[in-house]
Every structure is written in structure tokens, then in C-alpha cells.
Design a protein around this nucleic acid. Structure first.
Lengths: 107, 107
DNA sequence: AAAAACACTTACCTAAAGGTAACTACTTTC
DNA sequence: GAAAGTAGTTACCTTTAGGTAAGTGTTTTT
């Protein structure tokens, strides 16, 4: 896969970035993340957490009990995405203003 | 849609960036672009060209004939994506090296 | 006059992403 | 001992992305 597609694959999907943001904002337990990302289902959350772990953006930690507890933590490596995220957010909001100010013939 | 998702939507898909690159590299006619993006079909190319036009990244120009000719040109606005594209490419290739050097348990 | 090129469109199919709801196995609180 | 919580999994369905192949209408070359 070309490097550019690879990078887009990591960021893409409806939930990856919202999940990352939720964990950064303080959620760490599965149920806690589920509640703080409104609209996501358990199935999709489980799959996305696995993807994010595969990409070394977060770590799944099992704390020996009793009671055993599972937490998810964002790894420092995930911060290397920050400059890209900021640029994408800036460009995206600028782009939305452009589309609104010069609507296409079909809208 | 959040700004970040909006930006990702513009870039995403298997063919959008390869098409943009092909036109920048000198292809301008439909058939020419089709031949210079190996693997793409006419149907998908037509759809992607419309999307890119809707996002103001390129312009479809009909040259009055005879013979009439249709060309596609990348608009200057598309250059505002360049810094993002460079960062994504860099991060992506760095990420590929990381994944290779620390393979997961499932590979 | 026939054949090929040009820029698409249409119909049909497969695969991947995502959603819904029920279920599992364990633990903990009431 | 029943109910609720935790961290998922499973089966099933819909939507979106993308692929294949044939067709369309116009023009241009042979």
C-alpha cells in the first residue's frame, strides 16, 4: 500500500478519531468510552479499539484483580498525529465555508 | 459533519489522489486520465471526477468544436491540500516502517 | 460505408463498513 | 439469591464503495 493510503487508512472511519479524543479526555474503561462517544455501539467500539491497538496508537491494559479491570490508554506515539489532525481540522472548516459561500448548481 | 471528517471525506477513497496526481502530471482528457491511472474503470473515474469537481479541486472544461473536446484541470485551490498530503505521506511511510519493525502477535 | 475513438451511462454484482439486538461469562451490589 | 454491571461476541441486516461488462450517441479515421 502506498504511504499516503496507509496514513489515511489509520485515520479513517467514522469513529477512530472520536474514540481517541474520548480516551484523551479521560475515559479509559470500555463502558466509559462507549458512553462518552455518543452513538457508537459495543460491537463497533470493540473492533475500532483493536484497530487502534494494531496501529500502536493505544494500549489495552488488563489490571489483575480482583476485580480484574481493563483499561485503554493512548500511547505517546499517537501524538505524532496531532499536527496532521490540526491541519485537517483547519482545512476542513475552511473548506466548509468555501462550499457554503459558492454553492454548486445542484444544491 | 465535523470539520475533520469533512477533510477526510475529500481525500478519501482509493482513487481520488491518484487521479489528482495524474492530471497534475499532464493528463487532461478523460481517456488519457483513465490510461494513466492503472486499474481504474470508466465508471469509477466519471464518479470521482464529479466528486473532485464538487469539492472545487478541479474544473471540467468543454472546448467548443468541432471537434468538441472535454478536458479536466486541477484548480489552484487544490494546492492548499499539498502540505497535508506531504505530512500524510511522511507519517504513512514512517508508520509502515514502525509496523514492520515491531510486528504484532497476529502476523 | 465501416470501424474505431471519445466520454460517458446503465445494469448488475461483490465486498467492506457500519448498525441492531440478543447472548455470554464473570463479578459485584442489593 | 436476584439484579445489575463489565467487556465483550455473535448473528443478521442495510448502506456505501468499488468492480465488470455492455451499451449510447457523437465524431473521426480508414
Amino acid at each position: 500500500m502506498p504511504a499516503l493510503r496507509q496514513a489515511l487508512t489509520v485515520l479513517n472511519g467514522k469513529w477512530k478519531l472520536p474514540i481517541l479524543m474520548a480516551i484523551r479526555a479521560g475515559s479509559s474503561r470500555f463502558g466509559e468510552i462507549e458512553r462518552s462517544v455518543p452513538g457508537i455501539s459495543g460491537k463497533v467500539l470493540a473492533k475500532e479499539l483493536k484497530d487502534l491497538e494494531d496501529h500502536r496508537l493505544l494500549q489495552r491494559i488488563v489490571h489483575a484483580g480482583p476485580p480484574v479491570a481493563v483499561t485503554y490508554a493512548v500511547l505517546p506515539y499517537a501524538e505524532t498525529l496531532d499536527p496532521i489532525i490540526f491541519m485537517l481540522r483547519d482545512w476542513g472548516s475552511q473548506h466548509q465555508r468555501l462550499l457554503e459561500s459558492t454553492p454548486s448548481v445542484n444544491t
